[in-house]
Design a protein around this nucleic acid. Structure first.
Lengths: 341, 341
DNA sequence: CTGTTAGCGCGTTCAC
DNA sequence: GTGAACGCGCTAACAG
């Protein structure tokens, strides 16, 4: 590796017999500087491939042009889509993105956020872990005067703007669609009780049933803990083998629906004829299952873009107090698994 | 609420009537400093939540404790798995990871790498785009004396260490497995001719046929350009409708195999009885298809870990010249789509 | 043992 | 128009 000495303002000054400050000003075409000087300096800089030392600039201005992004899981279709959107927007505005994951473990999230807080980041985009409730480590960010935007999995305990999906509405539409298709005994394999998204979807489910004057049956509501295929399989088995089994299942997410589908197929129960199935999130898997899974698309890319925009706005206008909550509409994607008619 | 302004060494010095340098040394328990002083300073720093200004440190030491990571696509099961591994290892060693994507477009890759080069990164992990051949923008990294490690999609034009999968071996095993199952006319929907991975897999395919004394049939070898489901569908259609159709298809990747499967199912061609199918990469979709897809697992997480380790080794021992190439073995995952017997 | 001094590269006074 | 000087926070060489 060749150690190429980097050109500095001082070097240029020496070469051109100018002072450092003149060179500095010339490069940004300061009005005080003579046009000839400006041209001269710019030409020299160009020819010798002068690159300003970002480290020095950042140090002086106390900012890094980096923003942090923490998600529960990186290997996850929805989250990677969000990240993709955030990176796209950030890059457009001249920022880079530092990515970390919490694995849904509070300790890991704290470690990641502290690692970023130590001045390597101007602001933070975060989707909190299942274990995060208060978020002391995130308050540290705010205390330092750094911008934070929450997205998707959020907590109201933290006074920051957020970008979320209209989970209530998405669930409501999904369940209403099932009802419209003629299903009457609709089960819900839901998420954790302490997670906002899961609750919103649950509420949407309940509301849809109520609006259609369908009874709410407690034994058809099952709570996942880890949100896995296995849970989907297990709960479906329990319900189908119990009495008064459901004729449709609305699952908190596509993987869970896959577990449910697996059980139904094993038992030769026809989808959608005997049991209808709807997932949530529009993972790539939902298109690949057979029958293809009806699901709720969350526009992850757009969420990433919006979250990044919001954060960068805040960073650039420190004075403004943002408290905005952007709610993105979902889109029901109807496929074979729920089309009885 | 903590103090709004950050505590500096100078502040501590003033408060304790010590010089800045003494404080600095005390905090790192320099042997020259009296134990009492060390204790005193440390206690004060602790109580007042002193956090060293990383920006200043980095500026002075000319490094950032960040490493860059560029992949063709972020929303991609394999790559996100690699990233996950790289982040895990980097964090362990006190580094953060800056992520960007090229979308398989050379221009985007150049932009991303330049954005990172500008002193926001100590080294780079990259999986090059389909369009990258020479990699002038990557040479700039090397010229600046920054470490670069290539992984998965690499070019030999660039003298850097790499971490790759044994694509040849993986393909060889996959095709040998098909042969063992009794398939005789094995097609290959391959990747681009100018991409190394694709060629290695192709070679493995050829070698397996040769070793089994099976003929190589040109009309059963089809080259994808964009590596999509549509191409898989189209090529399979062409081959199945042409004369001397294949009785098995080895696909460059799982999505392509999904396209192939889609066509076969539409036409009522039985998998694996009439046509066997094998993919590559072990995406989550491969488990969800029905029949489940036989595929080649690439140990993405491990690849990320190895690549990060290599890069950090280089960063930490600037003097050592690394030219290592780590080749990770693959693992054939046999599922229903290829089990004729 | 501890303090003084001298930068790192840049931008921003304030003089001339 | 331009230059000199200072400081951002920290480290390291050199004194004492």
């Amino acid at each position: 590796m060749t150690d190429k000495k980097k050109l500095t303002l001082k070097d240029i000054g020496k070469a051109l017999n100018l002072s450092v400050s003149t060179v500095s000003r010339a490069l940004k075409a300061h009005p005080d500087i003579a046009q000839e000087t400006i041209d001269l300096v710019k030409k020299y800089a160009e020819e010798h491939h002068y690159v300003p030392n970002l480290l020095a600039i950042n140090f002086r201005k106390n900012r890094t042009f980096n923003i942090g992004l923490i998600v529960p899981e990186l290997v996850h279709h929805f989250f990677s889509t969000v990240i993709s959107g955030a990176i796209s927007e950030a890059n457009k505005q001249g920022y880079n993105i530092l990515v970390s994951q919490s694995n849904d473990i509070l300790k890991d999230e704290e470690k990641a956020s502290r690692a970023m807080l130590n001045s390597s980041v101007d602001g933070l985009l975060i989707s909190i872990s299942n274990e995060t409730t208060v978020g002391e480590h995130l308050k540290e960010f705010l205390d330092e005067g750094k911008a934070v935007v929450q997205f998707d999995k959020v907590t109201e305990q933290l006074p920051t703007p957020m970008v979320i999906v209209d989970d209530f509405d998405g669930a409501y539409n999904a369940v209403s669609h099932l009802i419209e298709q003629g299903y009457q005994r609709i089960a819900h394999i839901r998420g954790r009780i302490d997670v906002k998204n899961a609750c919103d979807r649950y509420e949407g489910y309940i509301k849809a049933l109520e609006d259609a004057s369908l009874p709410i049956l407690d034994h058809l509501i099952k709570p996942c803990i880890a949100i896995t295929e296995e849970e989907g399989y297990q709960f479906t088995k329990e319900m189908m083998e119990g009495k008064n089994p459901p004729d449709a299942i609305f699952c908190i997410t596509d993987v869970v629906a896959f577990g449910a589908m697996k059980y139904l197929k094993e038992k030769g129960i026809a989808i959608p004829e005997e049991v209808g199935l709807v997932g949530f999130s529009n993972w790539m898997v939902s298109r690949v299952m057979s029958p293809q899974l009806t699901t709720v698309n969350q526009h992850g890319f757009q969420m990433g873009v919006e979250a990044a925009k919001l954060l960068l706005d805040m960073i650039k206008n420190q004075d403004i107090a943002y408290q905005e909550t952007k709610i993105l509409k979902t889109e029901l994607i109807v496929r074979a698994s729920s089309q009885k008619k």
